[in-house]
Amino acid sequence: MMALFDVVLVFTLVLLAWRCVTVTDVFRAIVVFIVIGLLLGLAWARLEAPDLALAETAIGAGLLGVLLLGTWRALDAGERHACGHHRAPVPARWLAGIGSAGFGLAMLVALTSLDGHPGGAGELALNNLDAAGTEQPVTAVLLNFRSYDTLLEMGVVLMALIGALLCRAALTYQPRAEDVTVDTPLVPVLVTAFAPAVLLMGVYLVWAGTHSPGGAFQGGATLAGAGVLLVLGGRLHGVPHTALITRALLILGTVVFTAAGLLLIPLEGAFMAYPADFIYPIMLVIEYSLALSIALSLLLLFTGTHGLRRGES
């Protein structure tokens, strides 16, 4: 029964991906892309990766979807038309088709030829879980064994935000109200009903990350989702200037994470090594500060502004 479900799921995914890259209407391509994200969440939950299912639905489908739709709204009719009708010449498309089919086939052969895990890092990660300060193995890898990756990744998010802000920086352009808010009477009601629940879920997911599926990124993305709801409902507005608190929150995660790593060098002898007695509280502080910074960064990537202001709807 599950096998049949998997086959249908994979067939649908491939069909939708095909639609997404070939359909002319860009709006439909975006909608199909979002559906792909949701189905991937389902597939990854089937593949014993609930953390990733959460991350994909919240970040890959949800947040990126909202950003894509926002961009579509900002394009005028001519550009929307160009999105679908600007195609590579036919010979290039044929070459790309042959090349990518070959590439896909090679990938499939390689993935099939390799079964059986070579052990290594994965086994060690499970065996060293006791020393990691968390029961949740994904969180242990992200915040302890390979915390360096996670810290640098925060840098990537920050730099992407700087880039996005620079796109607006030289402009006298102010986001018009109708650019980001949705003008239907239902929205404020929905926002009032859902935003607190979504916020609460975000906070829960961050905390849950220490022992069950969840974590800073899923929780942060959910918090950002609550923020997006508030912006859409007109409860929050993007503003071109920035308050000190906004800036402080943006870098909080990176600074706390780096400071914990640097300050403990003399004690533990290595960057980002934590003393065993205090590891749980340290991890929790790092996780919450990361989640707050991620949430704010993603929200500002959505509004494309330096700051936020509360506003009446």
Binding site: V10, V14, V26, R87, A96, G99, S100
Partner: peptide, 22 residues
């Protein structure tokens, strides 16, 4: 199959539809 097909289609899309949004 899904993993390989998604990569192949992404590859194809990058070349075939050069508009930045696509």
């Amino acid at each position: 199959i899904a993993a390989a097909a998604l990569m192949a289609l992404g590859f194809y899309g990058f070349v075939a539809q050069p508009h930045p949004l696509r």
